[in-house]
C-alpha cells in the first residue's frame, strides 16, 4: 500500500504533465483532511450517507434474516420463496433506483433507505434460502434427537450454521448498499458523499473529490475487516458458548 502511495506521489509530482487540479498528488489529497471547513462538510455529508446506508442495510438484513428463519421452519415454504428471491437477486441494485424514485418519490430519507433495503434484502434472503438447502442434514437430525427446546436447537445448531453461510454474502451486500446509496445521492439527493463527489467533480476539485472517494474506500475496507472478524467469531457468539465452562 505504501509503495502504491509513493508511486502515486512520484507520478503526480514528476511524471504526468497535467495541472495539479486534474491529477493531484497523494499529499495534496491528504492535506485536505487538515482543512477544517472541508472536514466539516465531509463529516456532515458522510454522516448522512452512513445513516442511510446503515438503516437501510439493517432493515434489509433483519427482514431477510427473519424471513429466512420463518422459511427454515417449513422446507416447502423455502421451495416456493426461492424462485422469487432468485429473480429479485438477479436485478442489479441500482436498477431499483428509478423504480423507487417513482414509487417513494425524491425523498432525502425514504428513497436511499428503500434503495439500500432493496439492495440488501433479496441477496441476503437468497443466501439464507441457499444456506437452508445446504444445511448438514445430520446436524439437524442430531438437534432433533438431543435438543428438547426449539430455542436450544436454533441457538446451538441452526443459527451458527446459518451465520457461517450468510455472513460472506452480507459482506458483499454491505458494500453494495454503500455503493447504491452513493449513486442515489449522486443522481437525485441534495446531500451525502455521493452528492458531494458530484459537486467536487463539476467544480474540478479533484483533490477534494479523491479525498471523498478515499474516505468511502476506507469506510468499506473497515466494514469488510469488521465483518471478517465477526464471521470468525459469529458462531461462538451466537452459540453463546462460554469458552471455559459447561452450562
Amino acid at each position: 500500500m505504501l509503495v502504491f502511495f509513493l508511486i502515486w506521489e512520484f507520478t503526480a509530482t514528476y511524471l504526468i504533465p497535467v495541472p495539479k487540479t486534474i491529477f493531484p498528488s497523494f499529499t495534496q489529497v491528504i492535506w485536505n483532511f487538515t482543512d477544517q471547513s472541508f472536514l466539516l462538510t465531509l463529516l456532515s455529508n458522510y454522516s448522512q450517507t452512513l445513516l442511510r446506508s446503515s438503516l437501510g442495510f439493517i432493515a434489509g438484513f433483519l427482514s431477510s434474516f427473519l424471513t429466512g428463519l420463518v422459511l427454515s421452519l417449513k422446507h416447502t415454504a423455502s421451495d416456493y420463496a426461492s424462485p422469487v428471491a432468485t429473480l429479485m437477486f438477479s436485478v442489479p441494485s441500482v436498477a431499483w433506483i428509478p423504480v423507487l424514485i417513482v414509487l417513494v418519490g425524491v425523498d432525502e430519507f425514504r428513497l436511499p433507505l428503500a434503495a439500500s433495503f432493496m439492495c440488501s434484502y433479496p441477496p441476503i434472503l437468497y443466501g439464507m434460502i441457499n444456506a437452508l438447502r445446504t444445511f448438514d442434514r445430520d446436524q439437524l437430525d442430531i438437534a432433533a434427537v438431543y435438543c428438547l427446546k426449539h430455542r436450544t436447537r436454533y441457538r446451538f445448531v441452526i443459527l451458527p450454521q446459518l451465520m457461517a453461510r450468510v455472513l460472506p454474502s452480507v459482506k458483499t451486500e454491505v458494500v453494495m448498499v454503500w455503493k447504491t446509496v452513493f449513486v442515489t445521492e449522486m443522481l437525485v439527493l441534495p446531500n451525502g458523499i455521493g452528492y458531494l463527489s458530484l459537486i467536487y467533480a463539476s467544480t474540478l476539485n479533484m483533490d477534494k473529490l479523491i479525498a471523498v472517494v478515499l474516505a468511502l474506500a476506507l469506510t468499506l475496507v473497515s466494514i469488510n475487516a469488521l465483518i471478517d472478524r465477526l464471521e470468525k467469531k459469529s458462531s461462538r457468539i451466537l452459540g453463546g458458548v462460554d469458552e471455559q465452562h459447561l452450562p
Partner: peptide, 25 residues
Amino acid sequence: SYVPQNNALIPSLKVQWNIALGLID
C-alpha cells in the same frame, strides 16, 4: 440417542459442549 454415520458434531461447539448437547435442556 443416535450416532450418525458422519458424526454430525456441531462445528461451533467445543467437544465438551458437543458431548453435553443432550443435557443442556
